[in-house]
């Protein structure tokens, strides 16, 4: 379903959830949880947004049932470690490509996804200083390399 305009800020997290639903349903679950929680803060009053958030909540409830045997979903502390590891894996892959001078769309996406997953970590509480720095760096790198490739320049 189309995302209502007031909830546009969660569209990338929802797209990540969709993309990872088969590969890693736990990450997809927490991306959606982040989207609902953030969406409720953005707008849970207009009928359009309420309807959208209710549907997302339906999906989350059924995902939680399906994943009930998975400790990463039944215990949020384990879930936190799972998301943090996944974000770090994405970050390290992109960083390794960057340091090896291999600039491509996939590494840009990995940097950006790592930054989105660090956003998702906020559902568990305040971010560590290290995660704040990683998020800032990953988002900046993704934008910088994207612009370089678009303009036919070699990233430094």
């Amino acid at each position: 379903a189309a995302i209502p305009a007031p909830l546009k800020a969660i569209q990338h997290h929802l797209r990540t959830a969709q993309e990872l639903e088969k590969r890693d349903p736990v990450v997809a679950y927490y991306c959606k949880l982040y989207a609902v929680q953030t969406g409720m803060k953005l707008d849970s009053k207009s009928p359009e947004c309420r309807k959208f958030l209710m549907k997302l909540m339906d999906q989350l409830e059924s995902m939680k049932k399906e994943l009930s045997d998975n400790e990463s979903v039944s215990q949020e502390l384990v879930g936190h470690a799972h998301i943090e590891n996944y974000a770090l894996k994405m970050f390290l892959y992109a960083d390794n490509e960057d340091r090896s001078g291999r600039f491509h769309k996939n590494m840009i996406k990995s940097f950006y996804t790592a930054s989105l997953l660090i956003d998702v970590l906020t559902v568990f509480g305040e971010l560590s200083e290290e995660n704040i720095q990683h998020r800032k760096y990953a988002r900046w790198k993704a934008t910088y390399i994207h612009n370089c490739l678009k303009n036919g320049e070699t990233p430094q």
Partner: peptide
Amino acid sequence: TGSVGSSVASAEQDELSQRLARLRDQV
């Protein structure tokens, strides 16, 4: 009808908050 509408809206908002809390085992 305006107040009925806003009552419905806040009931639904509560429903969302309650479902979120249940989902996260916070109730």
